[in-house]
């Protein structure tokens, strides 16, 4: 029961924090932000890792393996694409270049 409450608390807390964080992001950065949150949603890879922490049957291994490939694809690809987008931004605004 405590665990359940804690989970719900974490859920609500993250939702609220996410709300406040995102509402201050400038419109200019919404597209890269969307791409990055897309990459973050590949956090299910942790779930796949937990799945493989005990002995599993053949079917479970196959489905888990598919999940693993998908999640890794989303994770690495998502961050790589966001990086590319942000690099594009820098070229456009030459004057902020020195910060990078």
């Amino acid at each position: 029961m405590i665990n359940l409450l804690l989970m719900l608390g974490v859920f609500l807390f993250s939702f609220v924090v996410g709300y406040f964080l995102i509402s201050r992001v400038p419109t200019l950065l919404h597209t890269p932000l969307m791409s990055m949150t897309n990459a973050i949603s590949a956090v299910t890879i942790l779930g796949a890792l937990i799945l493989f922490s005990v002995k599993s049957t053949g079917t479970e291994q196959v489905i888990g393996g598919v999940a693993f490939v998908m999640a890794a694809f989303n994770l690495v690809g998502g961050f790589a694409i966001t990086d590319r987008m942000l690099r594009l931004f820098k070229k456009k605004e030459g004057r902020v270049d020195r910060h990078g």
Binding site: S14, F15, G18, L21, T37, I40, S41, V43, G47
Partner: peptide, 12 residues
């Protein structure tokens, strides 16, 4: 961790 990251992405 999963819950938190997921909820954050959901909110955003």
């Amino acid at each position: 961790l999963l819950i938190s990251c997921g909820a954050m992405v959901g909110a955003s």
